[in-house]
Design a protein around this nucleic acid. Sequence first.
DNA 1: AGCTCATGGCGAG
DNA 2: TCGCCCTGAGCTG
Length: 269
Amino acid sequence: MPEGHTIHRLAEDHRELFAGRPVRASSPQGKFSDSAALIDGRELTSAEAHGKHLFLGFGATGWVHIHLGLFGKLGFGDAPAPPPTATVRLRLANPRAYADLRGPTTCALITDGEKAAIHERLGPDPLRAADDGEGAWERISRSRTSVAALLMDQKVIAGVGNVYRAEVLFRHGIDPYRAGRDLTRSEWDAIWSDLVTLMREGVRANRIDTVRPDHLPEAMGRPPRVDDHGGEVYVYRRAAQPCHICGTEIRTADLAARNLFWCPECQRR
DNA sequence: AGCTCATGGCGAG
DNA sequence: TCGCCCTGAGCTG
């Protein structure tokens, strides 16, 4: 589930369902019980996302900082909430709805200062209106690291995960192993603005779709195919299958303990 | 019942 | 670079 678009969508959902009213908070699983007691009955005053980090504001009480990691999930439902299962780290509930958080890497009550420190260590986020790609370009343009690794580095750019990484490099015909400093300014500008478009659409649709209309299965005379993560993609998790554009087998490799996917023909140095 | 794998990230060495 | 943390689905037997 969780790349940046998911987290921004979750922030919106929290605002819509819980903001401006007192919320009941509990930690059935137990690991967040003390903090849940501190926010129980308080009003949710804001909900923000930066990259893959979600911040739920409870006024002067502080922020609930949530990072879903690889396995975490936030599930919503209508009130009345059913009895929570044992793995629910945090349940928020009001007379209208409930939200259950399971398996997060992080769920902690933090101060304004701690929140500011998190923002500071994160790169620009294509989904934050005030951000642009300038700070990312400064790092990328002087790095010998591969562009594939740089795109996954949240200090460089926040919110891109393994799917957007693979897909945006495909869409721009860029070999994932090219060094950051070998990218041109115009290549980077195109990547950044494409991420803004793709990820905004991801928030809206709540899934990752990266295939251009003229490359969609129906346009190409192929049967419809929707990937596990819910959208239509070019290369992500398509190892050994034919490239939708040129038919070459999609390749996969380990890069920094993650699976990388690319088309060796469409993405050349 | 027990494996493997997954859209992440951290700290130790 | 490796091991580890968190959960659940989809296999295998």
